Amino acid sequence: MLEGKVKWSNSEKGFGFIEVEGQDDVFVHFSAIQGEGFKTLEEGQAVSFEIVEGNRGPQAANVTKEA
């Protein structure tokens, strides 16, 4: 699992980007967020995730919010 911080997200469009130190930003779709209820990410929020190869390149999977 990698750790990063949410660079920005748009809940209306359903995606955002995660900033990882020393690496390119990672695309995240809201379907990759683990948990119940409305899935949102806040700018600056710490997250853990895996990287998978998506249709348009690397993207985050199994995203969990850190406490």
Rank of each mutant, 00 (worst) to 15 (best):
A32H: 06
E66R: 15
A60G: 03
F30C: 06
G4K: 00
S9T: 15
K65G: 08
G44F: 04
I18F: 02
G57S: 05
T40H: 10
Q45K: 04
V63R: 00
K65M: 13
Q23S: 10
K7T: 06
K7V: 08
A60Y: 02
S48H: 11
A32K: 05
G14A: 09
G14E: 07
G14T: 13
K13E: 06
G16P: 00
G35C: 10
V26F: 03
L41K: 00
V63H: 01
Q23L: 12
M1C: 11
V63A: 03
E50R: 11
A32V: 07
S48T: 13
K65S: 09
E43M: 14
I33Q: 02
Q34K: 12
E66G: 14
N62V: 05
G57Q: 02
G35V: 06
G22K: 04
D24P: 15
K13T: 04
I51V: 09
W8E: 04
G4A: 01
K13S: 07
L2N: 07
G37P: 07
G4P: 00
V63N: 00
A61Q: 09
G37E: 09
S31M: 06
W8F: 09
A67L: 13
K65W: 11
F38E: 14
F30Y: 10
G14W: 09
M1Y: 11
E42L: 12
A60K: 00
V26Y: 03
V28N: 01
M1G: 07
V63Q: 01
K65P: 12
D25E: 04
Q45N: 07
F49I: 02
E12M: 11
V26S: 00
G16I: 04
V63E: 04
S31I: 04
G4F: 03
E19Y: 10
K5D: 04
E19M: 11
A46H: 14
F38N: 13
Q59S: 06
E53N: 12
I51S: 03
S9G: 05
V6A: 01
G44I: 01
F38Q: 12
K5G: 04
A67I: 13
P58I: 08
A60M: 01
K39Q: 14
E21F: 12
G14D: 03
Q59P: 04
V28C: 06
D24C: 14
H29S: 08
K5R: 11
V20S: 05
I18Q: 00
Q23E: 08
G37D: 10
I51P: 01
A67R: 09
D24W: 09
T64V: 14
F30M: 05
I51K: 06
L2T: 09
F15C: 05
L2H: 11
G16K: 00
F27G: 00
S48P: 01
P58S: 07
F30T: 03
V52Q: 08
G37Q: 08
G22V: 02
V26W: 02
I33R: 00
V52I: 12
I18Y: 02
E19N: 06
F38K: 12
N62K: 09
F17S: 01
I33K: 00
E66H: 15
F27I: 02
E36T: 12
D24L: 10
N62Y: 07
E12A: 12
T64H: 14
Q34C: 13
V63F: 00
Q45G: 06
E21W: 12
V26C: 05
G54A: 05
V26A: 02
G54N: 06
V52P: 01
N55D: 11
K65Y: 13
A61V: 13
V63G: 01
K65H: 10
V52R: 08
E19I: 07
F49G: 03
K13A: 09
H29P: 08
E3A: 14
E12I: 12
G54R: 05
E53R: 10
L41R: 01
F15T: 04
F27S: 02
Q45S: 09
F17V: 03
Q34W: 07
F38W: 11
G14Q: 11
N55M: 14
K5L: 10
F49R: 00
D25Q: 04
T64A: 08
S48E: 06
E12L: 13
E66K: 15
W8D: 02
E42A: 11
V26I: 11
S48I: 13
G35W: 10
I33V: 11
E42M: 11
K39M: 10
V52K: 08
E3G: 09
I33A: 04
G22A: 05
E3I: 15
G4Y: 03
V6L: 07
S48V: 13
A32F: 06
G57H: 03
F15H: 03
W8K: 01
S9V: 15
A32M: 08
E19Q: 13
V47A: 00
N62S: 08
A32W: 06
I18D: 00
K39W: 10
E42N: 10
T64K: 14
P58E: 04
T40C: 14
G54E: 03
T40I: 11
G14R: 13
S11M: 14
E3P: 08
G54D: 06
K65R: 09
G22C: 09
K5H: 11
N62L: 07
F49D: 01
I51Y: 05
Q23V: 08
F27E: 01
F27K: 03
K7S: 06
V26E: 00
G37L: 09
S9W: 15
V63L: 07
F30H: 05
V20K: 02
G14C: 13
Q23F: 13
F17T: 02
V20T: 06
F38S: 13
E21S: 11
V52L: 07
S11R: 13
H29M: 06
F27T: 01
S48C: 14
E36H: 11
E19R: 12
V6E: 03
G57R: 06
F17Q: 03
G22T: 04
Q23W: 12
D25T: 05
F49K: 00
K13D: 05
G14Y: 10
K5C: 13
A60H: 02
E42Q: 13
I18S: 01
L41D: 01
G44A: 03
T40F: 13
A32I: 03
Q34R: 11
L2E: 05
R56A: 07
N62P: 00
E3F: 15
G22F: 05
S31C: 09
V6K: 00
K5S: 08
G14N: 10
F30R: 01
K13G: 08
A32S: 09
E21D: 11
S48G: 05
L41H: 03
E19C: 13
K39F: 08
G44W: 05
K39V: 09
N10H: 08
E53L: 14
G54M: 06
G57T: 04
G57Y: 03
I51Q: 02
S31L: 05
F15D: 00
G57I: 00
V6G: 03
E50P: 00
G44L: 02
E43W: 14
K39N: 10
V20I: 10
F30E: 03
F17Y: 06
P58K: 11
D24H: 10
G16T: 02
V47H: 01
G44D: 03
E12C: 14
H29D: 05
V63T: 02
K39P: 10
P58G: 03
G37C: 11
T40R: 09
K7P: 05
Q23N: 09
A61M: 11
I18P: 01
